[in-house]
Design a protein around this nucleic acid. Structure first.
Lengths: 251, 251
DNA sequence: ATGTCTTTGTGAACGCGTGCACAAAGATGG
DNA sequence: CCATCTTTGTGCACGCGTTCACAAAGACAT
């Protein structure tokens, strides 16, 4: 997973636990697939398998939404799709701005998963004057100078930050000041925001590092022995065990 | 956060809790920034603030790695950078292949955060013959037919899937069969893999949906009343409360 | 109508993660 | 060498999330 929520200490948002909310989109996707195949009903066991979770967990998750199943039969697919969509707020239109139209920003603008779920890319914003006016994914890029005007003019409440790390916090501040209250951050930085603003972070490099950790464990239980041998105390280690600190650069 | 680990029930990987492992990259980034500013030592309080976590949590996290701090002083920045890097397996070279060179795949290939932490993009693979040979981020794209050869020839153990949803599982199967044991999945699908293979998922659309949920709650506590009124049982609801099921499309 | 069989919904136990609060450790100054 | 002050490392308690296991509920056949 990318990394979890930043702000919000674990507040359950009306009886619905955060962990459940995070799984609802997963269920929704599986249900949508079933709906396309015109499957009328599905059991918790089948749906859980499709979503890759435990069936008891799925039932408990749904129980937070209400009793939408029929014992002995299962859940009505169409009805459940609607209920989850409504619960997630996907029945309304969410205008979104993407700030930072580099490789990643452009990829996001072109990403089908955005437009397909009630999320509408209202504007693309970049600080590079040379980008201004250029169409990306059919939408002309606008300059950062007009950020506030764009946010307020379109009633945007969700912003996506895909800028370099250094630009993220200033951009974030301007977005929040202009009225954005939810931010999806792709920049490798910790954003600080006032209370009431939600930030979710997606960090590609962190995900890889977590994989590397597990990979390392799988690779060498025996090879780890030699590396583990060099465990010195700070005082003894002048500049690192094997003479030099390994080259690690900022993400 | 993107979404968490898929497989692996919560196995702590040698006394080090998963939650801690997930935070190590965060600490590492903050420490690297300090290192660049030539800051010699840092207290748990300062570092925690920079990483956006609780200081007690940070100290406990570090305690799993060993006693690397000095009471009354703090932690030696350089030494800690090295210890965390080593723990995460970042002191070695990890060849990575990216499969699916669309908008996202290209963005990933160009993403600096990959190359900068011991991750080396060993190959780019795409199913489109027209892409073959074209350089992306300075690396020529190779055809899917050669996937096994590429994996085995370069000793690749980490694969990144950035294909459309439909192609993800077949690609995953081939990667695993060829020897890949860690997968970072950007396709909006649940991948099934044999035991011993780690899968982490990054799902852009799910992150937005979670934001939308909280946004909806913030937006309307009062407007929610009218929507909440239409809570029928499946039997009563013929085809959905207000006559029609809202248009929701697959991600 | 009654019995059987399937599947939901949930009570309860357990385990992990978090955060408080404090004692131990060491640095620093006199 | 002793006192003071800072900061680490951790014991402990609490709460969330997960999972098991089962009773209640309803469909369906006879």
């Amino acid at each position: 997973m990318a990394t979890g929520r930043t702000h919000r200490p674990a507040t359950r948002s009306r009886g619905i636990p955060e962990a459940t909310v995070a799984r609802l989109p997963l269920y929704l996707r599986a249900l949508t697939a079933l709906s396309e195949r015109s499957v009328p009903t599905v059991s918790s066991e089948e749906l859980a398998a499709a979503a890759g979770v435990n069936s008891a967990k799925l039932r408990k998750d749904f129980s937070y939404l209400g009793s939408y199943g029929t014992r002995g039969v299962g859940y009505d697919v169409e009805y459940l799709v609607y209920q989850i969509s409504r619960e997630l707020g996907l029945t309304q239109d969410w205008p979104v701005v993407i700030v930072g139209i580099g490789n990643l920003g452009a990829a996001l603008a072109n990403y089908g998963g955005f437009a397909s779920r009630g999320f509408r890319v209202a504007a693309l914003i970049d600080a590079d004057p040379a980008m201004a006016g250029k169409p990306v994914a059919g939408i002309p890029v606008q300059h950062t100078d007009d950020l506030e005007k764009i946010i307020e003019g379109n009633g945007v409440s969700i912003g996506v930050i895909a800028t370099p790390a250094g630009a993220a916090q200033p951009v974030c501040d301007r977005l929040v000041a202009a009225g954005v209250t939810s931010i999806l951050n792709f920049a490798p930085t910790v954003l600080s925001v006032p209370d009431g603003v939600d930030v979710r972070k997606v960090d590609l490099s962190i995900e890889l590092q977590i994989l590397a950790f597990h990979e390392q464990r799988k690779a060498g239980e025996e090879a780890a022995a030699e590396t583990a041998a060099v465990t010195l105390t700070p005082k003894e280690a002048g500049k690192g065990p094997d003479g030099d600190v390994p080259a690690v650069m900022p993400a």
